[in-house]
Design a protein around this nucleic acid. Structure first.
Lengths: 352, 352
DNA sequence: CTGAAAGCGCTAACAC
DNA sequence: GTGTTAGCGCTTTCAG
């Protein structure tokens, strides 16, 4: 394994000159630059990451802290990771994915204190997230995916849940649906302060109110069984429902299963829209799901770019940005077959 | 940020003593050890990873190279990652997940040459995998998940596809199924030399032959549509089929959808077994799928432990191990309703 | 525009 | 059982 010394000797220059050519931190004449690069190529020289990191106090490693629960990483998160990795690579950084679960806060503290990470992107941020505290104490530059309760001081990228819900509701209302049920995450998740669940809940209430409609909301466990139970609850609460808006990517399969089990057809009896969903998952269902597609890879890229700006710049500027999901209409939404139920017996389709 | 120097001064010992206490590389009296540890605690000292790495020529970082394609990480892979991370952590190593796709071989070469990784676990190994070559050239210790074509020289952990298929077939045959169709990955995937697809194919032929049955095999694209198409093809080839064994976790939802679409009930008309599947995915379907559950977290742990042994030991010993998937019976398999078709009109259930 | 040399914070001989 | 010290391979002053 060639060192910088070898390169310097071969090029007949000093080690510092080699270093300056490689890092570009000071002007070098074209002639010596060529000599050095030729030597680098000849020896197939690769700078030693540890030595570079020690001397420069920069590891050129960025951490992406993602929750690795039993559920696995959905296509949405994967797109996110891919976008982030590409952006990091473009900036000359490595991106390491750290599967730190909720429990190992000490592990995170160690990682941060060991100066192994120049900066960190935090996924699945809770409204009150201890990881943020730990990292701030360690002085690690930070960008969030999602938002904590107090959004004022930190940089973040998040989904624009308000607009996303508004669009989804508008799509359904535009098709003629009047009784729309919102299936959220579980009550426990809501109670734990999971931002997306809370924000979409509020947004749904607001969006429905904007159309003069009654918002019906049902929590669901993150499982197919949870989805089935939620749908049963939904029919109990709103027998006339013609559309389901589901925030719960896991429960959606249970919802579809239960619908089929009741002899109801999707989309003709009941339309279904899945929130914050990747095309891959949407295509898994039969029929393919109309969904609000999350801006996965864009979010990853933007988060990393913001982080890199923090590392270079003075660090006092924050980057705060919201991105909406895009409506992609597939086979699970249609004009309701049953007449609108808010005025039973008098709906237009009833008179034809 | 305290350095080892600070600790040494506070404890009134030399830096090397601090180092030896921390690394345990040479005996230290209980008294000085206590002094040192007290100082470490008081200063909240954390060794600098870069400095340690440079001096010891060991980063204490292990890489887990996983393919990040559009599909995302299934629960199976996630379990794997979790098991690996736990094992690495237990050994005092960090585990970084590197989402190097198939394309960025240069990226991989750079990673390896920069001495940032002490060793690497490779997921989703192809029968001919260039990454193996690159890493071997860089002299990076290596453990594979899966096997290359030539299994002789490398350490690997893989699923015992032969036994897994045998068990799955035995389960179905035991229930009374005689016409079983195997839905594999796509023809393109098979042609590309994807080990699991090839090995399970051969194992299926062998297992069916062992029962005196005819193996019918259908390729399927990795999508719900692919699953639907495959099922249609299966009925065209074997109209009497009563069971489907599916290797394709993505297509399985299409298979179920098409079955339902044809008015066939699972499991009474057609039984379905999903191969190498996580409980989470199996529970997503309605009914929940009888599946061969992959030994995800065990494989991750075993792979890392083998890698750690390589790092410490002389390095000439290989670890080669196969783990079978476990049959978990859920709601998608049952005794066939239709009589066995290999002897039409003369089957036992027919005569009753 | 280039070189010499002093570290970065730690490990691991080498002394005693 | 403990201390001294020479590096690990690079970056970055400080000189010129």
């Amino acid at each position: 394994m060639a060192t910088m010394h070898d390169v310097a000797r071969l090029a007949r220059v000093s080690v510092s000159t080699v270093s300056y050519v490689l890092t570009g931190t000071r002007p070098i004449s074209q002639a010596t630059r060529d000599k050095v690069l030729a030597a680098v190529a000849e020896l197939d020289y690769q700078p030693n990451a540890m030595a570079r990191g020690l001397a420069s106090r920069r590891s050129r490693i960025l951490g992406l802290l993602m929750p690795m629960d039993e559920r696995g990483l959905g296509a949405t998160e994967t797109a996110f990771v891919t976008g982030a990795a590409a952006a990091a690579s473009a900036g000359g950084y490595h991106l390491v994915l750290s599967p730190v679960g909720g429990g190992d806060l000490d592990d995170l503290r160690r990682l941060a204190s060991q100066r192994m990470l120049d900066g960190v992107v935090l996924m699945e941020v809770q409204l009150a997230d201890e990881r943020v505290t730990v990292l701030q104490e360690a002085g690690t530059p930070l960008v969030l995916i999602g938002r904590t309760g107090d959004t004022s001081t930190l940089s973040y990228v998040d989904i624009d849940f308000e607009q996303t819900v508004r669009e989804a509701v508008a799509h359904l209302v535009g098709l003629g649906h009047r009784s729309i049920v919102y299936v959220n995450h579980s009550a426990a998740t809501l109670a734990s302060g999971y931002g997306p669940a809370l924000r979409t809940r509020d947004a749904f209430v607001a969006a429905m109110a904007g159309h003069g409609l009654e918002p019906v909301m049902i929590p669901a466990e993150d499982s197919a069984a949870g989805g089935r139970a939620a749908l049963a609850a939904a029919f109990a609460r709103a027998p006339e429902l013609t559309a389901v808006l589901a925030m719960n990517e896991t429960a959606i399969f249970g919802i579809l299963g239960e619908l089929t089990g009741r002899g109801l057809s999707v989309p003709h009896d009941v339309s279904v829209v899945s929130m914050v969903t990747s095309p891959q998952v949407a295509e898994l269902a039969t029929p393919a799901l109309t969904a609000m597609t999350s801006p996965g890879s864009a979010m990853g890229r933007i988060a990393i770019e913001a982080l890199l700006r923090h590392l270079d710049g003075p660090g006092d500027e924050r980057h705060q940005q919201l991105l909406p999901c895009a409506l992609e209409v597939r086979g699970s939404t249609a004009v309701p077959r049953r007449p609108a139920q808010d005025a039973p017996g008098r709906s237009p389709t009833d008179g034809g």
